[in-house]
Design a binder for these strands. Sequence first.
DNA 1: AAGATTTATTTGCATATACAAACAACATTC
DNA 2: GAATGTTGTTTGTATATGCAAATAAATCTT
Lengths: 114, 114
Amino acid sequence: MESWKKLGLAPSHAYLLMLVLEEPGVQPGYAAEELQLSPSTVTRLLEKLEEKKLVVRTTEGKLTNIYPTPKAKELYPQMKNCTREFQEKYQALINEEEASRLVKSINRINDQLP
Amino acid sequence: MESWKKLGLAPSHAYLLMLVLEEPGVQPGYAAEELQLSPSTVTRLLEKLEEKKLVVRTTEGKLTNIYPTPKAKELYPQMKNCTREFQEKYQALINEEEASRLVKSINRINDQLP
DNA sequence: AAGATTTATTTGCATATACAAACAACATTC
DNA sequence: GAATGTTGTTTGTATATGCAAATAAATCTT
């Protein structure tokens, strides 16, 4: 988590921002599903990201599109680094097969949930 | 989660209360470790439980002991029921071996964490 | 086309939780 | 035994998050 602090972004903000960078124009509802958050939480995260001039929202009718600003684009490589660091740290910490077993278990269970 | 509502207790409150019922006189710090919560969170939960006359705190020196009230003791069977219901619901939902594999994975990983 | 239903987003309010600082009692050291 | 450090608990403040209601736009019904 250390790494994120340098960026001045909480992980949840950063993950949303990366999604916006990877799919410019993405809509809040889709982002909510993708990140497994409620729509209202996404709205709150977007408020913060907008304050920080990292995204802009354009609303047309009932749809809203989210776009990254240039400032956000500059941050992208650093954010990628953070996710990499994070993974490396945890893969060192957690035995690798164990982690992949866990991920598989979780995915299988997820498939079975309603 | 339905089941808990009837009791008027959020699950986290109920789990703390059950701990207190099972180990009367337990201390906040110990409860925090046991429930994997921070001490401050336990304090906040205790405030609520005390308001509802389900526990009492007695402070001597820097130590605090938590005791269940008779009212809490009456609730115990119902709370036990809730945990049972909850488990049954999820074991029906999730394939059983899968769940136990997952629990094992999580435990193994937990053992390896610092 | 007016009214009813559905859908996407935002707001108001509530809860859970933590971190850091404050506090209070105890323990250590010189 | 006064100063310093340690430990257990509580407060102040902040963040993350969700549910239910409000809003607003799109779609369907008749």
